[in-house]
């Protein structure tokens, strides 16, 4: 069995309690400062943030490479620039 190794994030942003669209703005600004191929980890609340932010991130051309549900019902996303 082949295990895909999840990359270690180059940067982490905890966006829990940050409302839309400021959560996306913060993720976008972080990605702007990173180089192509680097990985950003963001933690988002369920609900509106999870409905909006991943879509906006994809529309900017970034790739969401992993989504993990955390114990407090929030989500951890790994985004490759």
């Amino acid at each position: 069995m082949v295990h895909e190794v999840k990359p270690t994030p180059d940067r982490t942003l905890d966006l829990r309690t940050v409302l839309c669209p400021l959560n996306f703005v913060r993720a976008k600004l972080a990605l702007e400062e990173m180089t192509s191929g680097q990985v950003l980890e963001v933690i988002l609340d369920d609900g509106e943030p999870m409905r909006n932010v991943p879509r906006s991130i994809k529309s900017e051309g970034h790739m969401i490479i992993d989504v993990l549900k955390l114990a407090d019902d929030s989500y951890r996303l790994l985004i490759r620039k």
């Binding site: 400021l22 976008k28 600004l29 702007e32 400062e33």
Partner: peptide, 16 residues
């Protein structure tokens, strides 16, 4: 970041 959020969201603007 909060004041100019709607500008920054635009692809043609962004942080830079």
């Amino acid at each position: 970041i909060e004041r100019y959020g709607r500008n920054i969201i635009l692809k043609e603007v962004g942080g830079s």
